[in-house]
Amino acid sequence: MSEAAAHLLIVDDNRVNRLLLSRSVELLGYTATVAENGHEAMDMLRARVFDLMLLDIEMPVMDGFEVLEAIKLEPALKDIPIIVTSSVEGVNNIVRCIDLGAEDYLPKPVNPVLLRARLSSSLEKKRLRDEQKTLLKRFATSEVVQDLQESGFKLGGRRVHATILFCDIRGFTTISERQSPEDTIEMLNIYYTLMFEAIDHHNGIVTLMIGDGLMVLFGAPQPLENSAASAVAAAQDMLAIIELFNLEQAAAEKPEIRLGIGIATGEVVAGYAGTKDRATYTCIGDKVNLASRLEGHTKRVSRPILIDEATHSAVSASQPCDPIGQVELDGFSKPVAVFAVGRSV
């Protein structure tokens, strides 16, 4: 039973209660650390991870209500399950604890059978929540996980100023025809790992993965100071990493990878789209189409990174760019000003 190793924090100003609660949880196979008031408890919670807290209400210095309130304000602490153990008088006080985020209430003196049941249930719930969080992190970026934890899940979008980046492997079909499917999957996995590292580093979030294609959003759900600059920096890192990867591929006599990247900046609608049961964080708007078209256009002009005018004006001060001119792109009625970042290939 994995929960047997759980480490509990017992907060009580009274020595008899501390001794008895410690003894009770230790007899159940858990480890206990004690704090004599809320202030001490907050310091301990910040210093190390506990699996659960048994919290008294009536305490000097900082009482249980104040601890519950303080924990709500600290995102790093708010996942800890809290069981209030108190002989505080009045149903109102118990309701207040629950309102403030306590998971459960055990009247004192604590009945050992009830204690065992509540601890085991709370710890099991926490284990499941932790598992969900791990799973969520595997399928969504940390920014989306953070946004979900802070604002909750709600279908629907909002208008944001953001930058969209599309990335694709040039000639991927040819590459995959020249090697076994197993080798292709392995190559894709390495490619994704490298790309995600560059994207994460510049606070982008991957909103779409199709085959060898990636759609990345910068500036939502968490705003960025200069989303265009972040996207261009990420694109340059992506190219640099792939160059190193290609050296290894060449040494192993395996196919090299060429990237095409298109970037556009402007207003998009970003949010969760899908159904209640299956949804994804994504964004829509003509800037998304534009970024995708620019990515497609890279093969025609043999430049790995193409950006639109809005992205260009946001980065031109620090970034040498070559004007490609006004380009006719599918789906756009007027020619679009296109710029290439960095050297030609």
Partner: peptide, 8 residues
């Protein structure tokens, strides 16, 4: 505190 301990 006294009440709580007496009840123990």
């Amino acid at each position: 505190s006294l009440k709580s301990n007496a009840n123990v």
